[in-house]
C-alpha cells in the first residue's frame, strides 16, 4: 500500500542476455521506493515484481564485499551503499560498470583486474620464508609506519575506480588504479622487501606513468582508499629510486620477546563455573 512517504521511481536498467541479445538495451521498471531504500533493495524489488531474469552480483549488502559496483546515474558506485533518495531523481539509471566486459545484465567480468592485481605480487615479499610460514612473533611496526599504507589496504576490489579512469577507458595495457594502489600498499609497508621485484612491472609501460591525475578514481572510491594518491606516491618512490635518492632500509625484523620480570602478585583465575559434559 502506498504510504505518504513512499515515492514512485523508475529503474532504468541496462539489460543484456548473452546468446540472445546482440547489443545491450535499456528497460524501464517502475517501483515504489520507501525511505532508506538502497539501489540494491530497489533491484531486488524489480526482480521480485517485474523482471525475474534480471542478473547482478551482490553479497554482503553493507559495503564490505565489493560485489555490487555499478554505474548508477552515470557514476560508478556500490548499489548497497547508495540510497535512492540521495540520488535526488525520479529515474535511477543502472548499468554495468564500464571498461569491463558484460557477462549478463549488470554483471561485469572483473577477472582482468584480479589477474593484474596478482601480477603486482600483493603480499609481503621477504627472504625469511621459514619465519613467514611458521611465525614465531609479529614483525615490528610503529603506528606511524602502519599509517603509510593503512588507507590503501581498505580496498575491496569493487572495480569502481577502473570504471571511472579515463586511461582504462581506452588502454587495455594500463594496470589501472586498483592494482597500482595495491602494489603501493605493499611497497610502502615497512615489513615488505619486494620493491625491486614489483619495480619490474611498475617501471614499464603499464605502470603509473599512464596516470595523469584526472582524479576520478579517488572521487568514486566507496571506501576512501584514494588510489590517485597511492599512484602519485608510487611515482615519487620509483623516480627517487631511478635517481638513486631512495633510502633503502631492510624490512622490519621480528619483534623481540618482551623482557623484564614476571609479576608474582597476579591473582589466580577464578574457578570454572561451567564444566564440560
Amino acid at each position: 500500500m502506498a504510504g505518504s512517504n513512499t515515492k514512485q521511481v523508475t529503474f532504468h536498467l541496462r539489460r543484456f542476455e548473452p546468446g540472445k541479445d546482440a547489443e545491450p538495451h535499456w528497460e524501464d521498471h517502475s517501483i515504489e521506493v520507501t525511505p532508506g531504500m538502497t539501489v540494491l533493495d530497489g533491484l531486488w524489488k524489480v526482480k521480485e515484481l517485474s523482471a525475474p531474469s534480471l542478473a547482478w552480483r551482490s553479497s554482503c549488502r553493507m559495503g564490505i564485499c565489493g560485489s555490487c559496483g555499478m554505474l548508477i546515474n552515470g557514476r560508478p558506485r556500490l548499489a548497497c551503499n547508495t540510497q535512492v533518495s540521495e540520488l535526488g531523481s525520479a529515474i535511477v539509471a543502472v548499468a554495468p560498470l564500464p571498461n569491463f566486459d558484460i557477462i549478463k545484465d549488470l554483471v561485469p567480468d572483473l577477472r582482468p583486474i584480479f589477474e593484474t592485481h596478482r601480477e603486482m605480487l600483493p603480499y609481503l615479499l621477504r627472504d625469511d620464508t621459514a619465519e613467514q610460514e611458521d611465525p614465531t612473533r609479529e614483525y615490528r611496526q610503529t603506528p606511524h609506519e602502519l599509517e603509510q599504507y593503512l588507507q590503501f589496504s581498505y580496498c575491496i576490489k569493487c572495480g569502481c575506480c577502473m570504471a571511472a579512469c579515463p586511461t582504462v577507458a581506452t588502454d587495455a595495457q594500463y594496470a589501472g588504479p586498483m592494482p597500482l594502489g595495491q602494489a603501493h600498499r605493499y611497497d610502502s609497508d615497512t615489513r615488505d622487501a619486494g620493491f625491486d621485484r614489483r619495480r619490474e612491472v611498475l617501471a614499464g609501460g603499464s605502470g603509473p606513468w599512464r596516470c595523469h591525475f584526472a582524479g576520478e578514481c579517488s572521487q568514486v572510491c566507496p571506501k576512501g582508499v584514494d588510489p590517485a594518491k597511492a599512484i602519485q606516491l608510487m611515482k615519487r618512490q620509483l623516480v627517487s629510486d631511478l635517481l638513486r635518492l631512495r633510502r633503502r632500509t631492510p624490512p622490519a625484523a621480528v619483534a623481540e620477546a618482551p623482557h623484564g620480570t614476571m609479576r608474582d602478585d597476579i591473582p589466580a583465575a577464578p574457578p570454572r563455573t561451567v564444566t564440560e559434559a
Binding site: 564500464p98 582504462v168 577507458a169 581506452t170 582524479g215 572521487q219
Partner: peptide, 26 residues
C-alpha cells in the same frame, strides 16, 4: 574478450557532465 565489450573508448577521456573538475583540466 569474455563477454560483451563495454570499454568506454575515447568518450571516456572526455567524460563530462557528472565528472569532476580535474577531469576537465586533464
Amino acid at each position: 574478450t569474455r563477454g560483451h565489450p563495454n570499454r568506454l573508448g575515447i568518450r571516456g577521456w572526455v567524460g563530462g557532465g557528472r565528472w569532476g573538475f580535474e577531469r576537465y583540466m586533464y
